[in-house]
Design a protein around this nucleic acid. Structure first.
Length: 490
RNA sequence: GACCCUAUCGUCUAGCCCGGUUAGGACACAGCCCUUUCACGGCUGCGGCGCGGGUUCAAAUCCCGCUGGGGUCGCCA
Protein backbone atom coordinates (compact mmCIF):
# COMPACT_ATOMS: atom_id res chain seq x y z
CA UNK A 1 0.00 0.00 0.00
CA UNK A 2 1.51 3.30 -0.98
CA UNK A 3 2.03 6.07 1.51
CA UNK A 4 -0.71 8.68 1.75
CA UNK A 5 -0.06 11.59 4.08
CA UNK A 6 -1.66 14.95 4.46
CA UNK A 7 -1.07 18.45 5.65
CA UNK A 8 -4.21 19.99 7.08
CA UNK A 9 -3.79 23.62 8.09
CA UNK A 10 -6.44 26.02 9.29
CA UNK A 11 -6.55 29.22 7.25
CA UNK A 12 -6.59 31.49 10.26
CA UNK A 13 -3.26 33.19 9.73
CA UNK A 14 -0.06 33.00 7.77
CA UNK A 15 1.87 29.76 7.67
CA UNK A 16 3.65 29.38 11.00
CA UNK A 17 7.13 27.91 10.91
CA UNK A 18 5.92 25.06 13.11
CA UNK A 19 3.20 24.19 10.64
CA UNK A 20 5.63 24.62 7.81
CA UNK A 21 7.84 22.01 9.40
CA UNK A 22 4.91 19.65 9.82
CA UNK A 23 4.10 20.17 6.15
CA UNK A 24 7.74 19.64 5.29
CA UNK A 25 8.03 16.32 7.09
CA UNK A 26 4.85 15.10 5.45
CA UNK A 27 6.12 16.21 2.08
CA UNK A 28 9.51 14.60 2.61
CA UNK A 29 7.85 11.41 3.76
CA UNK A 30 5.58 11.30 0.72
CA UNK A 31 8.32 12.13 -1.75
CA UNK A 32 10.78 9.76 -0.15
CA UNK A 33 8.49 6.84 -0.89
CA UNK A 34 7.84 5.40 -4.27
CA UNK A 35 4.37 6.55 -5.26
CA UNK A 36 3.84 8.41 -1.97
CA UNK A 37 1.09 11.00 -2.05
CA UNK A 38 0.65 14.25 -0.16
CA UNK A 39 -2.81 15.65 0.27
CA UNK A 40 -3.48 19.26 1.20
CA UNK A 41 -6.68 19.74 3.11
CA UNK A 42 -7.99 23.03 4.39
CA UNK A 43 -9.52 22.79 7.85
CA UNK A 44 -11.81 25.76 7.78
CA UNK A 45 -14.57 24.56 10.08
CA UNK A 46 -13.93 27.53 12.32
CA UNK A 47 -16.06 29.94 10.36
CA UNK A 48 -15.19 32.84 12.63
CA UNK A 49 -11.49 32.85 11.98
CA UNK A 50 -10.97 31.20 8.60
CA UNK A 51 -10.53 33.33 5.52
CA UNK A 52 -9.92 32.73 1.83
CA UNK A 53 -7.02 35.16 1.94
CA UNK A 54 -5.22 33.10 4.51
CA UNK A 55 -5.97 29.95 2.55
CA UNK A 56 -4.35 31.47 -0.51
CA UNK A 57 -1.51 32.74 1.64
CA UNK A 58 -0.90 29.25 2.98
CA UNK A 59 -0.85 27.77 -0.49
CA UNK A 60 1.46 30.48 -1.76
CA UNK A 61 3.92 30.03 1.07
CA UNK A 62 3.91 26.25 0.76
CA UNK A 63 4.62 26.54 -2.94
CA UNK A 64 7.26 29.13 -2.31
CA UNK A 65 8.97 26.70 0.04
CA UNK A 66 9.09 24.33 -2.90
CA UNK A 67 6.50 21.83 -1.75
CA UNK A 68 3.88 20.33 -3.97
CA UNK A 69 0.92 18.06 -3.34
CA UNK A 70 -0.98 15.50 -5.29
CA UNK A 71 -4.46 16.37 -4.16
CA UNK A 72 -5.82 19.56 -2.71
CA UNK A 73 -8.32 22.38 -3.15
CA UNK A 74 -6.24 23.97 -5.89
CA UNK A 75 -5.30 20.81 -7.79
CA UNK A 76 -8.35 18.63 -7.21
CA UNK A 77 -8.24 14.88 -6.77
CA UNK A 78 -10.60 11.97 -6.45
CA UNK A 79 -11.18 12.28 -2.72
CA UNK A 80 -12.36 15.87 -2.66
CA UNK A 81 -13.61 18.35 -1.89
CA UNK A 82 -10.52 19.33 0.06
CA UNK A 83 -12.03 22.11 2.11
CA UNK A 84 -13.85 20.97 5.19
CA UNK A 85 -16.37 23.75 4.77
CA UNK A 86 -17.51 21.97 1.62
CA UNK A 87 -17.89 18.57 3.21
CA UNK A 88 -20.87 19.11 5.46
CA UNK A 89 -23.00 16.44 3.76
CA UNK A 90 -20.32 13.86 4.38
CA UNK A 91 -20.14 14.73 8.04
CA UNK A 92 -23.92 14.60 8.35
CA UNK A 93 -23.97 11.13 6.87
CA UNK A 94 -21.49 9.84 9.37
CA UNK A 95 -23.18 11.65 12.19
CA UNK A 96 -26.42 9.81 11.37
CA UNK A 97 -24.55 6.54 11.40
CA UNK A 98 -23.27 7.23 14.88
CA UNK A 99 -26.73 8.29 16.01
CA UNK A 100 -28.21 5.05 14.73
CA UNK A 101 -25.54 3.08 16.51
CA UNK A 102 -26.31 5.15 19.61
CA UNK A 103 -22.69 6.08 20.02
CA UNK A 104 -23.54 9.75 20.39
CA UNK A 105 -26.05 11.79 22.32
CA UNK A 106 -27.42 15.28 22.59
CA UNK A 107 -26.03 17.55 25.26
CA UNK A 108 -27.98 20.64 26.25
CA UNK A 109 -25.47 22.17 28.61
CA UNK A 110 -24.80 25.76 27.73
CA UNK A 111 -21.30 27.06 27.22
CA UNK A 112 -21.59 29.20 30.33
CA UNK A 113 -22.64 26.22 32.43
CA UNK A 114 -19.77 24.17 31.12
CA UNK A 115 -17.32 26.94 31.75
CA UNK A 116 -18.52 27.33 35.32
CA UNK A 117 -18.28 23.64 35.98
CA UNK A 118 -14.81 23.48 34.50
CA UNK A 119 -13.63 26.30 36.70
CA UNK A 120 -15.29 24.80 39.75
CA UNK A 121 -13.66 21.44 39.08
CA UNK A 122 -10.28 23.07 38.61
CA UNK A 123 -10.68 25.04 41.82
CA UNK A 124 -11.59 21.85 43.68
CA UNK A 125 -8.49 20.17 42.30
CA UNK A 126 -10.49 17.84 40.10
CA UNK A 127 -10.02 17.08 36.42
CA UNK A 128 -12.02 19.67 34.42
CA UNK A 129 -13.52 17.08 32.12
CA UNK A 130 -17.14 17.00 31.04
CA UNK A 131 -19.20 15.09 33.57
CA UNK A 132 -21.31 13.24 30.99
CA UNK A 133 -24.47 14.50 32.65
CA UNK A 134 -26.55 14.54 29.44
CA UNK A 135 -25.54 11.02 28.53
CA UNK A 136 -28.67 9.35 29.82
CA UNK A 137 -31.27 12.04 29.49
CA UNK A 138 -34.84 10.77 29.46
CA UNK A 139 -37.12 11.61 26.58
CA UNK A 140 -39.02 13.94 28.88
CA UNK A 141 -35.87 15.84 29.80
CA UNK A 142 -34.90 16.14 26.15
CA UNK A 143 -38.33 17.39 25.26
CA UNK A 144 -38.25 19.90 28.07
CA UNK A 145 -34.84 21.24 27.02
CA UNK A 146 -36.10 21.53 23.49
CA UNK A 147 -39.15 23.51 24.47
CA UNK A 148 -36.85 25.74 26.45
CA UNK A 149 -35.22 26.43 23.13
CA UNK A 150 -31.85 25.15 24.26
CA UNK A 151 -29.22 24.55 21.63
CA UNK A 152 -27.74 21.10 21.65
CA UNK A 153 -24.40 19.63 20.68
CA UNK A 154 -23.66 16.00 19.99
CA UNK A 155 -21.23 14.22 22.21
CA UNK A 156 -19.46 10.95 21.68
CA UNK A 157 -19.88 8.27 24.32
CA UNK A 158 -16.41 7.48 25.53
CA UNK A 159 -16.36 3.82 26.61
CA UNK A 160 -15.88 3.12 30.29
CA UNK A 161 -12.94 1.11 31.50
CA UNK A 162 -11.13 1.08 28.20
CA UNK A 163 -7.45 1.72 27.68
CA UNK A 164 -6.37 2.92 24.25
CA UNK A 165 -2.87 2.11 23.14
CA UNK A 166 -1.17 2.97 19.91
CA UNK A 167 2.29 2.77 18.53
CA UNK A 168 3.48 6.27 17.78
CA UNK A 169 6.11 6.46 15.07
CA UNK A 170 8.24 8.84 17.07
CA UNK A 171 7.35 8.00 20.65
CA UNK A 172 6.70 4.30 20.67
CA UNK A 173 3.80 2.84 22.58
CA UNK A 174 1.49 5.39 24.16
CA UNK A 175 -1.47 4.48 26.36
CA UNK A 176 -4.48 6.41 27.57
CA UNK A 177 -7.14 5.47 30.04
CA UNK A 178 -10.56 6.39 28.65
CA UNK A 179 -11.85 7.04 32.15
CA UNK A 180 -9.77 10.19 32.32
CA UNK A 181 -11.63 11.52 29.28
CA UNK A 182 -15.04 13.15 29.27
CA UNK A 183 -17.50 12.60 26.46
CA UNK A 184 -16.36 15.03 23.81
CA UNK A 185 -18.31 17.10 21.33
CA UNK A 186 -18.31 15.99 17.73
CA UNK A 187 -21.06 18.28 16.44
CA UNK A 188 -21.30 21.88 17.47
CA UNK A 189 -24.35 23.97 18.20
CA UNK A 190 -24.07 25.53 14.74
CA UNK A 191 -24.44 22.08 13.19
CA UNK A 192 -20.82 21.84 12.10
CA UNK A 193 -18.44 19.06 13.05
CA UNK A 194 -15.64 19.66 15.52
CA UNK A 195 -12.06 19.14 14.56
CA UNK A 196 -11.99 15.69 16.11
CA UNK A 197 -14.82 14.47 13.96
CA UNK A 198 -13.95 16.08 10.67
CA UNK A 199 -10.32 15.11 10.89
CA UNK A 200 -11.17 11.45 11.36
CA UNK A 201 -13.86 11.33 8.68
CA UNK A 202 -11.63 13.10 6.19
CA UNK A 203 -8.50 11.16 6.92
CA UNK A 204 -10.51 7.98 6.58
CA UNK A 205 -12.21 8.98 3.33
CA UNK A 206 -9.01 10.38 1.89
CA UNK A 207 -7.34 7.08 2.75
CA UNK A 208 -4.62 8.69 4.80
CA UNK A 209 -2.48 5.94 6.25
CA UNK A 210 0.13 8.00 8.10
CA UNK A 211 -0.72 11.01 10.18
CA UNK A 212 2.33 13.12 10.95
CA UNK A 213 1.32 16.09 13.06
CA UNK A 214 2.33 18.22 16.00
CA UNK A 215 2.72 16.90 19.51
CA UNK A 216 -0.18 19.07 20.62
CA UNK A 217 -2.40 16.37 19.12
CA UNK A 218 -0.90 13.49 21.03
CA UNK A 219 -3.50 13.63 23.78
CA UNK A 220 -6.25 13.92 21.17
CA UNK A 221 -5.23 10.74 19.45
CA UNK A 222 -7.24 8.33 21.64
CA UNK A 223 -10.37 10.30 20.75
CA UNK A 224 -9.56 9.90 17.12
CA UNK A 225 -8.92 6.20 17.49
CA UNK A 226 -12.26 5.83 19.22
CA UNK A 227 -13.95 7.60 16.31
CA UNK A 228 -12.25 5.35 13.79
CA UNK A 229 -13.61 2.43 15.70
CA UNK A 230 -17.06 3.98 15.78
CA UNK A 231 -17.22 4.33 12.01
CA UNK A 232 -15.73 0.89 11.56
CA UNK A 233 -12.46 2.04 10.07
CA UNK A 234 -8.82 1.30 10.66
CA UNK A 235 -6.85 4.16 12.24
CA UNK A 236 -3.72 5.35 10.50
CA UNK A 237 -0.19 5.09 11.84
CA UNK A 238 0.45 8.17 13.96
CA UNK A 239 3.65 10.13 14.40
CA UNK A 240 3.73 13.15 16.68
CA UNK A 241 6.35 15.78 16.07
CA UNK A 242 7.93 17.72 18.92
CA UNK A 243 7.00 21.39 19.16
CA UNK A 244 9.11 24.30 18.03
CA UNK A 245 9.94 26.56 20.95
CA UNK A 246 11.10 30.10 21.55
CA UNK A 247 14.31 30.98 23.35
CA UNK A 248 12.56 30.61 26.73
CA UNK A 249 11.38 27.12 25.76
CA UNK A 250 7.76 28.20 25.59
CA UNK A 251 5.99 27.31 22.35
CA UNK A 252 7.19 29.64 19.61
CA UNK A 253 4.89 32.62 19.38
CA UNK A 254 4.86 36.13 18.05
CA UNK A 255 6.49 37.61 21.09
CA UNK A 256 9.62 35.60 20.27
CA UNK A 257 9.99 37.40 16.96
CA UNK A 258 9.21 36.40 13.44
CA UNK A 259 7.20 33.19 13.37
CA UNK A 260 5.62 33.06 9.95
CA UNK A 261 7.17 31.75 6.80
CA UNK A 262 5.90 34.86 5.06
CA UNK A 263 8.12 37.07 7.17
CA UNK A 264 11.26 35.16 6.30
CA UNK A 265 10.16 35.07 2.70
CA UNK A 266 9.79 38.83 2.73
CA UNK A 267 13.24 39.22 4.24
CA UNK A 268 14.62 37.40 1.27
CA UNK A 269 15.70 34.10 2.74
CA UNK A 270 16.00 31.51 -0.01
CA UNK A 271 13.26 28.89 0.44
CA UNK A 272 15.64 25.96 0.31
CA UNK A 273 17.49 27.47 3.28
CA UNK A 274 14.29 27.76 5.30
CA UNK A 275 13.43 24.18 4.48
CA UNK A 276 16.91 23.05 5.34
CA UNK A 277 16.85 24.76 8.71
CA UNK A 278 13.36 23.58 9.57
CA UNK A 279 14.29 20.01 8.69
CA UNK A 280 16.99 20.12 11.35
CA UNK A 281 14.51 20.95 14.07
CA UNK A 282 13.51 17.58 15.45
CA UNK A 283 15.23 15.53 12.83
CA UNK A 284 18.79 14.66 12.11
CA UNK A 285 20.48 12.62 9.41
CA UNK A 286 22.70 11.10 12.14
CA UNK A 287 25.91 11.91 10.36
CA UNK A 288 27.55 15.27 10.70
CA UNK A 289 26.14 16.87 7.58
CA UNK A 290 23.63 19.65 7.92
CA UNK A 291 23.53 21.60 4.70
CA UNK A 292 21.10 19.99 2.31
CA UNK A 293 19.29 20.75 -0.88
CA UNK A 294 15.62 19.76 -0.90
CA UNK A 295 16.32 16.73 -3.07
CA UNK A 296 18.97 15.55 -0.61
CA UNK A 297 16.46 15.83 2.19
CA UNK A 298 13.97 13.75 0.26
CA UNK A 299 16.42 10.98 -0.31
CA UNK A 300 17.78 10.77 3.23
CA UNK A 301 14.68 11.62 5.23
CA UNK A 302 13.47 8.91 7.52
CA UNK A 303 10.71 9.04 10.06
CA UNK A 304 12.85 6.85 12.31
CA UNK A 305 15.32 9.68 12.80
CA UNK A 306 12.79 12.00 14.34
CA UNK A 307 13.46 13.48 17.74
CA UNK A 308 11.14 13.39 20.69
CA UNK A 309 11.87 16.65 22.45
CA UNK A 310 11.03 20.26 21.61
CA UNK A 311 13.53 22.34 19.68
CA UNK A 312 14.29 26.03 20.12
CA UNK A 313 14.07 28.07 16.94
CA UNK A 314 17.37 29.87 16.45
CA UNK A 315 17.39 32.56 13.75
CA UNK A 316 21.15 32.79 14.06
CA UNK A 317 21.62 29.24 12.91
CA UNK A 318 19.05 29.61 10.19
CA UNK A 319 21.06 32.56 8.96
CA UNK A 320 24.20 30.46 8.84
CA UNK A 321 22.43 27.69 6.96
CA UNK A 322 21.09 30.31 4.62
CA UNK A 323 24.54 31.73 4.02
CA UNK A 324 25.69 28.25 3.04
CA UNK A 325 22.98 28.10 0.42
CA UNK A 326 23.75 31.61 -0.78
CA UNK A 327 27.32 30.55 -1.45
CA UNK A 328 26.10 28.08 -4.00
CA UNK A 329 24.50 30.81 -6.06
CA UNK A 330 26.23 32.92 -8.66
CA UNK A 331 25.94 36.71 -8.71
CA UNK A 332 23.42 36.64 -11.53
CA UNK A 333 21.12 34.39 -9.56
CA UNK A 334 21.46 36.46 -6.41
CA UNK A 335 20.78 39.63 -8.33
CA UNK A 336 17.62 38.21 -9.86
CA UNK A 337 16.25 37.29 -6.46
CA UNK A 338 17.31 40.56 -4.89
CA UNK A 339 15.80 42.77 -7.58
CA UNK A 340 12.52 43.39 -5.77
CA UNK A 341 14.40 44.51 -2.69
CA UNK A 342 16.74 46.66 -4.73
CA UNK A 343 13.86 48.32 -6.50
CA UNK A 344 12.03 48.75 -3.23
CA UNK A 345 15.09 50.41 -1.73
CA UNK A 346 15.32 52.57 -4.84
CA UNK A 347 18.80 51.35 -5.60
CA UNK A 348 17.87 50.46 -9.13
CA UNK A 349 14.92 50.82 -11.41
CA UNK A 350 13.74 48.54 -14.12
CA UNK A 351 14.20 47.86 -16.93
CA UNK A 352 17.91 47.19 -16.67
CA UNK A 353 20.14 47.57 -19.65
CA UNK A 354 22.60 44.78 -20.34
CA UNK A 355 25.44 46.96 -19.09
CA UNK A 356 23.59 47.87 -15.94
CA UNK A 357 22.86 44.33 -15.00
CA UNK A 358 26.40 43.37 -15.84
CA UNK A 359 27.68 46.07 -13.53
CA UNK A 360 25.21 45.12 -10.81
CA UNK A 361 26.37 41.54 -11.00
CA UNK A 362 29.88 42.73 -10.40
CA UNK A 363 28.77 44.68 -7.38
CA UNK A 364 27.05 41.59 -6.07
CA UNK A 365 30.20 39.59 -6.67
CA UNK A 366 32.11 42.10 -4.57
CA UNK A 367 29.82 42.02 -1.54
CA UNK A 368 28.29 38.55 -1.62
CA UNK A 369 30.50 36.74 0.87
CA UNK A 370 28.72 36.22 4.14
CA UNK A 371 25.37 37.18 2.66
CA UNK A 372 22.53 35.44 4.49
CA UNK A 373 19.45 36.63 2.67
CA UNK A 374 18.65 38.70 -0.37
CA UNK A 375 17.38 41.78 1.36
CA UNK A 376 20.77 42.38 2.91
CA UNK A 377 21.95 43.29 -0.52
CA UNK A 378 20.56 46.82 -0.93
CA UNK A 379 22.42 48.00 2.15
CA UNK A 380 25.58 46.15 1.14
CA UNK A 381 25.44 47.78 -2.28
CA UNK A 382 25.05 51.26 -0.90
CA UNK A 383 28.67 52.03 -1.31
CA UNK A 384 28.46 51.50 -5.05
CA UNK A 385 25.39 53.58 -5.55
CA UNK A 386 26.29 57.08 -4.55
CA UNK A 387 29.42 58.59 -6.07
CA UNK A 388 29.01 61.74 -4.03
CA UNK A 389 29.48 60.24 -0.62
CA UNK A 390 30.27 62.17 2.52
CA UNK A 391 33.25 61.25 4.60
CA UNK A 392 32.44 62.17 8.17
CA UNK A 393 34.27 59.61 10.25
CA UNK A 394 37.08 61.26 12.19
CA UNK A 395 39.43 58.38 11.67
CA UNK A 396 38.90 58.52 7.91
CA UNK A 397 39.45 62.26 7.76
CA UNK A 398 42.60 61.76 9.77
CA UNK A 399 43.90 59.31 7.20
CA UNK A 400 43.23 61.68 4.33
CA UNK A 401 44.98 64.53 6.07
CA UNK A 402 48.32 62.82 5.89
CA UNK A 403 50.88 64.45 3.71
CA UNK A 404 51.52 61.54 1.43
CA UNK A 405 47.87 61.22 0.40
CA UNK A 406 47.76 64.01 -2.14
CA UNK A 407 50.60 62.73 -4.29
CA UNK A 408 49.38 59.17 -3.83
CA UNK A 409 45.88 59.87 -5.07
CA UNK A 410 47.15 62.00 -7.88
CA UNK A 411 49.20 59.10 -9.08
CA UNK A 412 46.34 56.69 -8.42
CA UNK A 413 43.99 58.77 -10.51
CA UNK A 414 46.53 58.92 -13.29
CA UNK A 415 47.10 55.17 -13.31
CA UNK A 416 43.42 54.37 -13.17
CA UNK A 417 42.79 56.54 -16.19
CA UNK A 418 45.34 54.42 -18.06
CA UNK A 419 44.02 51.08 -16.84
CA UNK A 420 41.42 49.23 -18.85
CA UNK A 421 41.85 45.64 -17.80
CA UNK A 422 40.14 44.96 -14.47
CA UNK A 423 41.38 41.48 -13.85
CA UNK A 424 42.79 40.87 -10.37
CA UNK A 425 46.31 40.54 -11.74
CA UNK A 426 46.15 43.71 -13.68
CA UNK A 427 44.76 45.77 -10.80
CA UNK A 428 47.33 44.38 -8.43
CA UNK A 429 49.99 45.15 -11.00
CA UNK A 430 48.74 48.70 -11.12
CA UNK A 431 48.94 48.96 -7.32
CA UNK A 432 52.47 47.61 -7.36
CA UNK A 433 53.51 50.18 -9.91
CA UNK A 434 52.10 53.03 -7.81
CA UNK A 435 53.69 51.66 -4.68
CA UNK A 436 57.01 51.51 -6.45
CA UNK A 437 56.79 54.99 -7.84
CA UNK A 438 55.54 56.70 -4.69
CA UNK A 439 57.23 54.51 -2.12
CA UNK A 440 53.94 54.27 -0.24
CA UNK A 441 52.93 50.83 0.94
CA UNK A 442 50.73 48.86 3.31
CA UNK A 443 48.06 50.71 5.20
CA UNK A 444 49.39 54.05 4.06
CA UNK A 445 48.61 52.96 0.57
CA UNK A 446 45.42 50.96 0.89
CA UNK A 447 43.51 53.10 3.33
CA UNK A 448 43.56 56.28 1.24
CA UNK A 449 42.87 54.25 -1.88
CA UNK A 450 39.89 52.59 -0.24
CA UNK A 451 38.60 55.90 1.04
CA UNK A 452 38.91 57.58 -2.32
CA UNK A 453 36.90 54.78 -3.88
CA UNK A 454 34.24 54.10 -1.28
CA UNK A 455 34.50 56.75 1.41
CA UNK A 456 34.74 54.00 3.98
CA UNK A 457 37.47 52.37 6.02
CA UNK A 458 35.94 48.92 5.68
CA UNK A 459 34.39 47.14 2.79
CA UNK A 460 34.87 44.57 0.08
CA UNK A 461 38.13 43.69 -1.60
CA UNK A 462 39.44 46.73 -3.40
CA UNK A 463 40.12 44.75 -6.54
CA UNK A 464 36.43 43.83 -6.69
CA UNK A 465 35.43 47.46 -6.52
CA UNK A 466 37.08 48.22 -9.87
CA UNK A 467 34.87 46.15 -12.15
CA UNK A 468 31.84 47.06 -10.07
CA UNK A 469 32.30 50.77 -10.67
CA UNK A 470 34.01 51.06 -14.04
CA UNK A 471 36.57 53.58 -15.06
CA UNK A 472 34.42 56.66 -15.30
CA UNK A 473 33.01 56.35 -11.81
CA UNK A 474 36.33 55.28 -10.34
CA UNK A 475 37.92 58.46 -11.59
CA UNK A 476 35.00 60.57 -10.60
CA UNK A 477 35.23 59.27 -7.06
CA UNK A 478 38.97 59.57 -6.72
CA UNK A 479 39.07 63.09 -8.04
CA UNK A 480 36.13 64.16 -5.98
CA UNK A 481 37.75 62.94 -2.79
CA UNK A 482 40.97 64.64 -3.80
CA UNK A 483 39.18 67.91 -4.29
CA UNK A 484 37.01 67.82 -1.23
CA UNK A 485 38.95 66.01 1.42
CA UNK A 486 42.62 66.03 0.60
CA UNK A 487 44.83 68.94 1.58
CA UNK A 488 45.82 70.74 -1.58
CA UNK A 489 49.48 70.01 -2.03
CA UNK A 490 51.72 68.94 -4.78
C1' G B 1 -5.25 19.31 39.57
C1' A B 2 -5.62 14.50 36.50
C1' C B 3 -3.65 12.17 32.33
C1' C B 4 0.07 12.04 28.49
C1' C B 5 4.83 13.46 26.36
C1' U B 6 9.75 15.00 27.29
C1' A B 7 15.02 15.97 29.47
C1' U B 8 23.13 15.42 26.34
C1' C B 9 27.32 22.09 25.89
C1' G B 10 23.68 28.86 25.82
C1' U B 11 21.16 26.63 21.02
C1' C B 12 20.40 22.44 17.19
C1' U B 13 22.04 17.59 17.72
C1' A B 14 25.19 12.34 17.44
C1' G B 15 25.72 8.64 21.02
C1' C B 16 20.96 5.43 24.42
C1' C B 17 17.57 0.18 21.69
C1' C B 18 22.64 -3.94 21.98
C1' G B 19 26.30 -0.45 29.36
C1' G B 20 33.11 0.19 28.59
C1' U B 21 33.75 6.84 23.66
C1' U B 22 39.41 11.63 25.83
C1' A B 23 30.73 12.12 25.18
C1' G B 24 31.41 13.63 18.46
C1' G B 25 29.62 17.58 15.01
C1' A B 26 27.28 22.43 13.95
C1' C B 27 25.54 27.57 15.46
C1' A B 28 26.94 31.21 18.98
C1' C B 29 31.12 33.00 21.95
C1' A B 30 36.73 33.83 22.74
C1' G B 31 41.68 33.68 20.76
C1' C B 32 45.05 32.96 16.70
C1' C B 33 45.99 32.72 11.36
C1' C B 34 44.63 34.65 6.47
C1' U B 35 43.48 39.87 4.88
C1' U B 36 45.03 47.12 3.77
C1' U B 37 39.87 46.59 6.73
C1' C B 38 35.05 44.20 7.79
C1' A B 39 33.18 39.77 6.19
C1' C B 40 34.39 34.88 4.22
C1' G B 41 37.71 30.83 5.15
C1' G B 42 41.20 27.91 8.38
C1' C B 43 42.91 26.47 13.30
C1' U B 44 42.49 26.34 18.61
C1' G B 45 39.73 27.08 22.88
C1' C B 46 35.33 27.61 26.17
C1' G B 47 31.21 24.74 27.31
C1' G B 48 27.07 19.41 28.44
C1' C B 49 24.87 13.94 30.07
C1' G B 50 18.72 18.01 35.37
C1' C B 51 18.79 15.72 40.57
C1' G B 52 18.68 11.36 43.86
C1' G B 53 18.68 6.31 44.47
C1' G B 54 19.34 1.32 42.53
C1' U B 55 21.43 -2.78 39.17
C1' U B 56 26.62 -3.67 37.54
C1' C B 57 33.54 -4.73 37.85
C1' A B 58 31.61 -0.57 34.80
C1' A B 59 25.73 3.80 33.68
C1' A B 60 24.69 9.51 29.23
C1' U B 61 23.14 4.41 28.06
C1' C B 62 19.15 -0.29 32.11
C1' C B 63 15.37 0.30 36.51
C1' C B 64 12.80 3.42 40.26
C1' G B 65 11.75 8.11 42.34
C1' C B 66 12.04 13.42 42.11
C1' U B 67 12.40 17.97 39.68
C1' G B 68 12.04 21.05 35.39
C1' G B 69 9.63 21.97 30.58
C1' G B 70 5.51 21.03 27.30
C1' G B 71 0.70 19.14 25.74
C1' U B 72 -4.50 17.59 26.54
C1' C B 73 -8.63 17.92 29.63
C1' G B 74 -12.78 23.88 24.55
C1' C B 75 -19.31 24.11 20.79
C1' C B 76 -10.26 26.40 18.41
C1' A B 77 -7.90 23.44 15.19
Amino acid sequence: MSVRVRFAPSPTGYLHVGNARTALFNWLYARHHQDGKLILRIEDTDKERSTKEFEQGLIDDLKWLGMDWDEGPDVGGEHGPYRQSERDDTYQTYQKQLQEKELVYRCFCSQEELKQRREAALAAGKPPKYDNRCRDLSNEQIASFETEGRVCVWRFKVPVGRVITFDDAVRGEVRFDCDTMGDFVIFKGDGGPTFHFSVVIDDHLMQINHVIRGEDHLSNTPKHILLYEAIGAEPPKYGHLPLILGSDRAPLSKRHGKTSVRQYREMGYPPEAVINYLSLLGWSPKDNREVFKPEDLISIFSIDNLNKSGAVFDVEKMGWISAQHMKEKNPKEILEHAMPALIEAKKVSEPLSAEESDRLEKMVAAVRSGLRYYNQLPEQMDLFMNDEFEIAEAEALEVLKQEHVAPLLKEFSQKVSELDDYSNESIKGCFKAIQKETGIKGKNFFLPVRLSLTGQLHGPEIVDVFPALGKERLLKRIDRVRNLYVEAGT
